[in-house]
Amino acid sequence: MAKLTIEDLKKIRENARKATSLRSGEVTVKITVHMGTCGIAAGARECMNALLEELAQTDRQDIRIMNAGCMGMCSSEPNVTVELEGQPPVIYQHMDGNKTRQVFKRHVLKGEVQTDFALARIKET
């Protein structure tokens, strides 16, 4: 594999500029991986890495993957929260790399909530 260099970043920058339509960097999907000590010990980093690998294979610039701290439900960690624009956030529990990939491919990319893995859907108040 050719050695990657800073030059590649220049190419990425140029391609990103050409490809960017009039979209101004809006975010339509927010994925949160909970990384408290509980989540990390339970395997949250593997979920995060799976998401990053899946993201790198798309061309979606509107997906944000974020870290957050513990939300207090330590026994269901790793937890991953997926929020599609205009839809209630869904908290997934007991996640691992494979389940995370499935959620990305089916929920994030196709809008199909994976109810088998879900802990809760956050109700709008």
Binding site: I12, A16, A56, I63
Partner: peptide, 25 residues
């Protein structure tokens, strides 16, 4: 890295791939 990217976010799929490959390599 961000200086080179001149505003392209690190969450851009190509950047995520570049970062992953660069760090692991």
């Amino acid at each position: 890295i961000k200086k080179e990217l001149e505003g392209v976010p690190v969450s851009h799929p190509d950047v995520v791939k570049w970062l992953g490959d660069t760090i692991r390599q």
